[in-house]
Amino acid sequence: MTEEIIIAGFGGQGVLSMGKILAYSGIMQDQEVSWMPSYGPEMRGGTANVTVILSDNRINSPILTQYDTAIILNQQSMDKFEPEVKPGGLLLYDPNGIIRPPERKDINIYKIEASKEASNLGLPKIFNMIVLGGYIKIKPIVKLDNVMLGLKKSLPPRYHHMIPDNEKAIKRGLEIVEDVQKV
């Protein structure tokens, strides 16, 4: 099994940390993982993205141009990465701020109202964990238990008091993800 994922959105949305938790979840179940961020000017507020690969085998290229899954959190990333999903692959997006929804007919499309849900819960910071929950609901490549362990591993101890909220968000994500198009 190899799953090649791009997570893309604005800097500050928690794109990189979502990727890190996913990668740690993979380690928790003995997979090989890689996490390759866009670094540099993007980190200071523009678009940010991270390529995460989980595999049972040695990972070859950490940098890709085609993905099994694209998790898309803003319009710029939709424009850039919708064409790069492999046919039959998965596109998961948050419709907040998306003015042109995905148009491809040869991929599975799901949406998750994560930013809306996060503000309903009064916890805007855990938006990314709602999205992560949605993703593992669609593709349970990592077990929920391992995601929870990954979460603990990737947060420094001074943030451990935030774990319960994050767990809640992941579970909420499992519930609210909706399918738009299946192929």
Binding site: K20, I27, E32, V33, S34, W35, M36, Y39, I59, P62
Partner: peptide
């Protein structure tokens, strides 16, 4: 190089 410096792996 910058890629290996910045990427995370196990």
């Amino acid at each position: 190089d910058g890629a290996i410096g910045q990427m995370m792996e196990k």
